[in-house]
Computed example of a mutant assay.
Amino acid sequence: MIYLLAFFLPPVALLFYGKIFQAIFNAVIWIVGFIFLLLGGWVLWAIAVGHAIFVIHGARADARTQKIVDAINSGK
Rank of each mutant, 00 (worst) to 15 (best):
M1N: 12
M1C: 10
I2Q: 04
I2L: 14
I2F: 08
L5M: 11
A6K: 00
F7I: 11
F8H: 09
F8S: 10
P10K: 04
P10R: 04
P11W: 00
A13V: 11
A13R: 03
A13I: 13
L14K: 02
L14S: 01
L14I: 12
F16C: 00
G18Y: 08
I20L: 11
Q22V: 14
Q22E: 07
A23F: 02
I24L: 12
N26R: 04
V32E: 08
G33W: 01
I35V: 10
L39E: 07
L39Y: 02
L39K: 11
L39W: 06
G40E: 14
W42H: 08
V43L: 15
W45T: 10
I47A: 10
I47Y: 03
A48E: 05
A48N: 03
V49K: 02
V49E: 03
V49G: 01
A52K: 01
F54G: 11
V55Q: 06
G58T: 11
A59D: 09
A59M: 11
A61G: 05
A61K: 14
A61R: 15
D62E: 01
D62K: 15
A63T: 12
T65K: 15
Q66R: 14
K67Y: 05
K67E: 14
I68A: 15
I68M: 15
D70S: 04
I72D: 05
N73W: 07
S74D: 09
G75T: 11
K76Q: 08
